[in-house]
Design a protein around this nucleic acid. Structure first.
Length: 119
DNA sequence: TTTCTGACA
DNA sequence: TGTCAGAA
C-alpha cells in the first residue's frame, strides 16, 4: 500500500509517516516513481511506534527498542533485558520530573494564597 | 488524484 | 507536525 492508505489505516498523518522514515523507524520500499510502498506489517509497526512515543520514548530510543519488542494484544512486551533497564531509568526520570513540578506548584500556590489573603 | 521533496508570516 | 509550493 502507499502512504495515503497507511495513513488512513493507522490514523497517523502522511507527514508523520515520512518523519518516522527519516528517523529510521520505518523502511518502506520505493517504486520507480519514488512512491513509498508499505506492507501490512507496517500497520502494526506504526501502532507500536505510537504507543512507544506515548510512553515518552524518543525516536532514537524507539529505533533500538522496536526490534526487541514483541506483540501481545496491544501490550508491548520488551524482549531485551538491556531495554528494560533503560525503560526503568526512563520511568525514574519521569518520577523525578513529577516531583519537581509538584514542588514548583506548591510554591506557586503559596504565592497565590498570599495574594488572595492580601486582597 | 496522489505522492515527493524541501522549506517556514 | 501542519502546510504550501512546484513537479511527476
Amino acid at each position: 500500500m502507499r502512504i495515503g492508505e497507511l495513513a488512513r489505516r493507522t490514523g497517523v498523518s502522511e507527514r508523520a509517516l515520512r518523519y518516522y522514515e527519516d528517523q529510521g523507524l520505518l523502511r518502506p520500499e520505493r517504486r520507480p516513481s519514488g512512491y513509498r510502498v508499505y506492507g501490512d506489517a507496517d500497520v502494526a509497526a506504526v501502532r507500536r511506534i505510537r504507543t512507544l512515543l506515548a510512553a515518552g520514548l524518543s525516536t532514537a530510543q524507539i529505533v533500538q527498542v522496536l526490534p526487541c519488542v514483541v506483540d501481545d494484544e496491544g501490550v508491548l512486551v520488551p524482549g531485551c533485558p538491556e531495554l528494560v533497564d533503560e525503560l526503568v531509568r526512563q520511568s525514574e526520570r519521569i518520577g523525578a520530573a513529577i516531583d519537581e513540578l509538584a514542588a514548583t506548584r506548591a510554591n506557586l500556590d503559596t504565592i497565590i494564597t498570599a495574594h488572595r489573603r492580601a486582597s
